[in-house]
Amino acid sequence: NENISMDYSIKHPLQNCWTLWYYENDRNQSWEKNQREIASFETIEDFWSLYNHIKPASDLKQGTDYSLFKKGIRPMWEDDANKRGGRWLISLEKKQRNNDLDRYWLDIILCLIGEAFDNSEDICGAVVNIRYKGDKIGVWTADATKGAAVMEIGKKLKDRLHIPPRVTIGYEIHKDTMDKTGSSSRYSYNV
């Protein structure tokens, strides 16, 4: 690969155009208005131009989110693309903010934009929540009833992030998340 000369005049196109969103809680505004589009990109170079100029997730304020979704999909359950789906949820301990958070978030982004999953057409996007009680990363898929696709994505995710076999991650259907009243989660799938 080192012998191949790079043509820097041509950018590398991505399979999909992606939009990065930022959420900050302003109680004077609706939740939807607090979700703001930052930028969209459809080449590798434009992705790095954006990523290299924004704060890493670990530097964000408590209560904020980054979301990366295919263009046209809003980072919310109510969007038509998301409403029948769910998310693989990675819950981090507080100490992991310094060790693992940025690495996990970047690796997930690279899986998304590089179409690493066999069932990448089922991928909607990913969200990282920065929270005092522990950060979370969710990988959102379109259809919770497509068990084989959901499981393939979950297994590859665990593999790419080098999550130890003894650690289980769960997939939560958005509808269940919406309906839940307590803090316990109902996982429809596990890896």
Binding site: M6, Y8, H12, P13, L14, Q15, I44, E45, W48, N52, D107, L110, C111, I113, G114, E115, A116, S120, R160
Partner: peptide
Amino acid sequence: GTKIVYERNFLLNLRNSP
């Protein structure tokens, strides 16, 4: 159909591309 797939290292190697 076909899709454009990029490996992790390939993406990382372009991080500092001009």
